[in-house]
Simulated assay, not measured.
Amino acid sequence: MAFKAVGAGYADVAAHFRTLIRDGELAPGAALPSVQEIREQFNVSAKTVSRALSVLKSEGLAIGRGSLGTVVAEQSRVASSGSARLDRLARTGRIYSPGETSTDHEAMFRSCADLKVANALGVELYDEIPIRRRTFIQNGKPVVIGYSYFHPRALTAVPEIMRQGQLKPFWQTTYTERTGLIVSRSPEERGARLASQDELDVFGLDLPRSVAAAVLVLHTAHHDEDGPIEVWEDVYAPGLWQVSGSV
């Protein structure tokens, strides 16, 4: 992928290679271009390149390999978010990163017991709403539990939301086709909380009941012109990162 930018900063350089890595254009073990090649590609200083590569290493995306320079790391501790999957789908036509898939797609009606989700969705706390859940698998291991919380009006236009199993095509595509309304998303909000026992079971973690495990949690709100329509919640296995919504 060619890229040339006058005055690009280290964050631009890091973002470029981060995207290539997460899209599978650069596979684990592949060498990144040399410092000189990156300098020429982006018209930046050696210091800027060094800082960009340090960012990728700190995120677990790349490692130094002596005479080989910087190579793509095995990414067992980094996982995509839902927003990243949509961005990847738009760029490449692929929703999953290399080595990733999903399973256990479930649909249910449940009480919305999370005040943050209720407020973002524009419903009352404990209202019954449609919810979908799935587990994302990376290199054979469960890494993220994804929840979709829907405003009830979404179900009116797309009753397939309550279908068990994976929805194809993406439900928002069907919603736009049927209503003419475009769905947009807000920036991800990051936080943390203690994992529930059910989530620990999904991640295959057998911890004593007296031991608490913290998990990274991302929330992404989706809207159309009539207001909130869906809220995503991505729950990461303990110890996992999510480095950017754009990867």
Rank of each mutant, 00 (worst) to 15 (best):
S83R: 05
T220Y: 00
E37R: 13
R65P: 05
R110Y: 05
E177C: 07
A79T: 04
V217Y: 00
P130W: 09
A213V: 00
I145G: 09
F42A: 03
F17A: 04
W171Q: 14
E189S: 11
I21D: 01
S50M: 12
D234K: 01
D198Q: 12
A11R: 12
Y175T: 00
L167P: 01
L26D: 13
S97A: 10
A79K: 08
S83Q: 12
S76T: 13
A79F: 14
G245Q: 14
N43V: 05
S244V: 13
T19Q: 11
A214V: 07
E100R: 02
A31E: 12
T19D: 07
Q36F: 11
E124Y: 04
I137N: 10
I21L: 01
S67P: 06
E100S: 10
Y147C: 05
R22P: 00
G69S: 07
G60P: 14
R88N: 08
Q197L: 14
V231H: 10
L53F: 14
R110P: 01
G191N: 10
D224Q: 08
K57V: 15
S97W: 00
F136V: 12
V117L: 14
A120F: 07
L240F: 02
G204I: 08
V243D: 05
P159L: 00
V144D: 07
D114V: 05
E74G: 08
V158N: 13
F150G: 01
N119V: 11
A90N: 11
T220W: 00
Q172V: 13
A11D: 12
P142L: 03
V13A: 09
S186N: 14
D234L: 00
L216S: 09
F150T: 00
A27Y: 09
I63K: 12
N139F: 02
I161E: 03
E188W: 06
V123E: 01
T156V: 10
D114T: 03
W232F: 15
L218A: 04
E230P: 01
V49E: 11
E225Q: 12
V215A: 03
L56I: 10
Q75V: 07
R85L: 06
S97T: 01
S58W: 08
I129A: 08
V6I: 09
G122K: 10
F42H: 06
F3P: 02
P238E: 04
A154Q: 00
M1T: 08
R51D: 04
A107M: 02
D12K: 12
Q197G: 15
T48E: 11
P228C: 06
E225A: 11
S196I: 02
G180K: 06
L68T: 05
S83H: 12
N139H: 05
L216V: 02
V117G: 10
A14G: 08
I137D: 06
V117S: 06
R133D: 12
V231A: 08
S184G: 07
G66Q: 05
T101Y: 01
A237L: 10
G227F: 02
E106R: 15
G122W: 13
F42L: 04
L53I: 11
Y96Q: 04
A27V: 11
T220K: 01
F170K: 00
V72N: 11
E160N: 14
D127V: 04
